[in-house]
Design a binder for these strands. Structure first.
Lengths: 340, 340
DNA sequence: TTGTAGGCGTTATCAC
DNA sequence: GTGATAACGCCTACAA
């Protein structure tokens, strides 16, 4: 196959000691070595096709130039742009991304986090942490640089980037009430995840602020941010009396589930019932009907999280930053004035 | 912060030599050590919360329990299920996944592949290789276990999993001709990628087999598998005379682009023009109109690729396997009989 | 400016 | 069955 070229090989060819070769090859220490010598080393390295062994370097320097990214499920269209934003911000600095899907399963989260730590990652971006899971405790205690993306922690202080969920929901309720809706149902996401909780709280607050009752009969809790759960919850809502004229969903996946339930029940959106989502996932503008939803810049959220992580890893004692991205409402075809 | 527990710490606490502790901790070599001693070591490790340092181990053993996955762009909904399938198949065996988005850019491909090799990955899954790019040459020469997913190599022999693209296109043409279409346009994907090329070839072959002419005026080549390119190509097709009554697209992204171009032009799908995609990406069943397309099991494709890679990494001299998954046509609302 | 030496945490190969 | 030793490839005081 192929014989790996090591620093010794380069040094030998350049006629210098490996230590000198190391210094010449490393931009940081290059000034320490004679220009001419450095040139010889560099060209020897080039000719041999030398690539430093990142593992050996990592063992020595305690830096792996690798970061871990934990997400619930890549198949949720919300996450690909976030991951992409992370990678794009990190790649120019030489980092590479380890990815792990957790399914919001505590054990799996734990396992993946440990595997990443074992591999000496320089930092982690979590979009996955349960509000009070042991993962956050472990992360905090480990001293590993950790940044939260699209999530907030209750009890620990991590840098984070997220959306102003309350504000987003407020926009949703504002839009629906303007259209004339009064009986608004809510499909809430899991309450042990910060996005689920804060949007739910935002719903309650906004409804009350609008002088409407957040009737518990018109609130259903999904066990996961999934299409299937959205469908189930919507079915329940359809049975409530008097019926809702609009449904707000904790995220777009749940909203798509509502579409499915409405189809099943032979109800039309928005003629019979309006539906609003949250996230503005890719392609929801092309659903039938196009989904009215709360948008925020996903890619940028990832990029910002990466930026925070870089700060953190540089360890310049920056204070812990908590960033909020502004949401905005995108009105499309899934909302209309109530029928009556 | 936290003091990392090393093998020496465990050994010391168990009152044995580090080498013995190592043997006791490793299932493979445990039989070599006294049961009682092993027990002591294990419990010492447990009490201290010992986790072996994967980097050090990797330096020594030349295995990193890490595999690299290169894809064009995670934001193309085709890839998340594939990546997920890969991870799920690999995780039980202790592997972790490094991911890289290449945008089909040769330099970026190269860079990411090298970074992964530097980190001593045990293998790579490529869904991204240009047909004749230097990446494949480098991969072949490196001796690193490499598997192709959703791609085929022209000049090298790699294990691979892909769809039978010719067959898929044949189904598309069969469906359209049955509906009565004769003037069928084609939005071809990039020809330097195997999926683009084989589907294009399949189109030509199928058209001829159906006794139709594959008129060059009704074939447009996209420079990328993107919505934007699909839109552009469809615009061109709309200008051809006599006009097509149906458009087949090289993949779903291009088909979505066709939707956009039709919207722009005020043409209706399927009333004015039928559109067919390829891939059955998630959510295309919920587009407006639901997209008729060629489906295949994405998740399973990833899982199979991972399986092939595991074989390869085990190095049991298996012959090179080339796997094809059967496609099937999913007829939805975007196709209908031609207007006239 | 360059060479020497030691060690990062493991595991493999010896001896005992 | 266990301990000693060396080495994986690199970096970095320190000495020259």
């Amino acid at each position: 196959m192929a014989e790996p070229v090591t620093l010794r090989d380069v040094a030998q060819r350049a006629g210098v000691h490996p230590a000198t070769a190391s210094r010449a090859l490393n931009p940081e220490t290059r000034p320490l070595v004679n220009e001419e010598t450095a040139r010889r080393v560099l060209s020897a390295a080039g000719e041999l096709g030398y690539r430093p062994n990142a593992v050996a370097r990592s063992l020595r320097t305690k830096r792996s130039m690798t970061v871990g990214v934990l997400i619930p499920d890549l198949r949720n269209p919300l996450f690909p742009p976030i991951v992409r934003g992370i990678e794009d911000r990190l790649a120019p600095d030489g980092y590479v991304v380890l990815i792990g899907n957790t399914d919001l399963d505590t054990d799996r989260e734990q396992m993946l986090f440990e595997r990443m730590r074992d591999r000496n990652v320089d930092g982690c971006i979590l979009t996955t942490a349960q509000l009070r899971g042991s993962l956050l405790a472990e992360a905090a205690q480990s001293g590993l640089p950790v940044v939260l993306a699209n999530r907030l922690a209750e009890e620990y202080s991590f840098p984070s980037v997220s959306v102003d969920n309350e504000l987003g929901i407020k926009m949703v309720i504002g839009h629906l009430t303007e259209l004339g809706h009064r009986r608004i149902g809510y499909v809430a996401g899991p309450q042990d995840v910060s996005t689920g909780l804060s949007r739910y709280q935002g719903f309650i607050t906004s409804m009350e602020a609008a002088g409407l009752s957040a009737d518990p009969d018109r609130i259903v809790f999904a066990r996961a941010f999934s299409v299937e759960e959205g469908r189930r919850c919507c079915q329940e809502l359809l049975a409530s009396r008097p019926p809702c004229t609009a449904i707000a969903a904790g995220n777009d996946m749940l909203a798509v589930g509502c579409y499915a339930a409405l189809d099943d029940a032979g109800r039309s959106c928005p003629d019979d019932i309006s539906v609003v989502g949250f996230n503005d996932m890719p392609f929801v503008d092309r659903l039938r009907p196009p989904l009215t939803t709360v948008a925020f810049p996903h890619y940028q959220l990832g990029a910002e999280a990466a930026e925070l992580l870089l700060d953190r890893m540089a360890g310049d004692g920056h204070p812990v930053k908590v960033l909020y991205l502004a949401p905005h409402l995108v009105v499309r075809g899934s909302t209309a004035a109530p029928a009556g």
